[in-house]
C-alpha cells in the first residue's frame, strides 16, 4: 500500500533539501509470506551534498536507489525529489522529472549498444528536445578524455572507457541529483579509482547532489556522509 499522507517529520527537513525520504518501505509477496526489503527508512539530503549509501549485499541499497529515483514505487512512505512528491506523479511524470533533474550511473554502464559514444551522450539531450545536442555532448566527452573515441561503439571500448561515457551521459544534462549504483563494481581497482576521481571532479564542477550506492568503505569515506543499511533498515554508521 502506498501511503501519501504526511508522516511525522522523522527526516530532517530543511529549505535546501533536494531529496527527502520519509518512512519508506518496500515489501514483496512470496508464496508463503511477505518479504520486507526496506522498512521505515527516512532521511534527507541537501543540495550539493555527496552521500554514500553503504551496506552488505542484499541489504536493500539498490532497491532504495530505485525508489529514490522513481524507477519503482514504494509499498509505504514517500519520496520528495527536487520539490516534487514522486508518489503523486504517474510513470510519465516521474520520467519527465528524471529527464529534467536526475542523472544516472550504473554498475553495468547501460550504454545502448547500437549507438556510438557520442550518440549515447546525445541521447538524453535529444529526448529533452534540446536544440543542439551535439556540442555539449562532444564537449563533455572531451572533458572525460574520450574526445578521440566519439564514433566508437560500446563494444569497441574498454570497461573504464564505457563508464566514462556513462559519466558523460549522466552529467551532460547538468542534473540536480546524480544517482550512482556501484559505479566501480565492474572495474578493476585502478580504473575504478580513475572513474571515481572523474565522478567527484564533475560533481564538484557542476555542484550536483551525489547519491552513491556502494559496498566499498574506502569509496564511501570520500563522500560528505554515509547512510548504512542493514536488513532493510537504516542503522547508525
Amino acid at each position: 500500500m502506498t501511503d501519501t499522507s504526511a508522516e511525522p517529520a522523522v527526516a530532517q527537513l530543511s529549505a535546501d533539501s533536494v531529496l527527502v525520504v520519509n518512512g519508506l518501505g518496500k515489501r514483496v509477496p512470496l508464496p508463503d509470506r511477505q518479504l520486507t526489503i526496506l522498512d521505515d527508512v527516512s532521511f534527507s539530503i541537501r543540495a550539493g551534498e555527496a552521500v554514500a549509501i553503504v551496506g552488505a549485499s542484499g541489504s536493500g541499497k539498490s532497491t532504495l536507489l530505485g525508489l529514490m529515483a522513481g524507477l519503482d514505487l514504494p509499498s509505504s512512505g514517500t519520496v520528495i525529489l527536487a520539490g516534487e512528491s514522486l508518489n503523486a506523479l504517474d510513470e510519465d511524470g516521474r520520467a519527465r522529472l528524471r529527464g529534467q533533474k536526475v542523472g544516472f550511473v550504473f554498475q553495468s554502464f547501460q550504454l545502448l549498444p547500437s549507438l556510438t559514444a557520442l550518440e549515447n551522450v546525445m541521447l538524453p539531450l535529444e529526448l529533452a528536445d534540446a536544440a543542439d545536442a551535439m556540442t555539449p555532448a562532444r564537449d563533455i566527452l572531451q572533458k572525460v578524455g574520450l574526445g578521440d573515441r566519439l564514433g566508437h561503439y560500446p563494444r569497441q571500448l574498454s570497461g573504464g572507457e564505457q563508464q566514462r561515457v556513462a559519466l558523460a551521459r549522466a552529467f551532460v544534462t547538468r542534473p540536480d541529483v546524480l544517482f550512482a549504483d556501484e559505479p566501480t563494481g565492474n572495474l578493476d581497482t585502478e580504473t575504478g579509482a580513475q572513474v571515481i576521481d572523474l565522478l567527484f571532479e564533475l560533481n564538484r564542477q557542476q555542484g550536483t547532489t551525489l547519491v552513491l550506492v556502494t559496498h566499498d568503505e574506502k569509496l564511501a569515506v570520500r563522500c560528505d556522509r554515509s547512510l548504512r543499511l542493514s536488513g532493510g533498515q537504516l542503522v547508525s554508521p
Binding site: E91, A95, R96, R98, L127
Partner: peptide, 16 residues
C-alpha cells in the same frame, strides 16, 4: 528491452 529501460531512466515518456 534494455534500451527502453535506459530511455525511461533518461526521462522519455511512454508515448515518446
Amino acid at each position: 528491452l534494455d534500451g527502453c529501460a535506459v530511455m525511461r531512466c533518461l526521462g522519455a515518456s511512454q508515448a515518446r
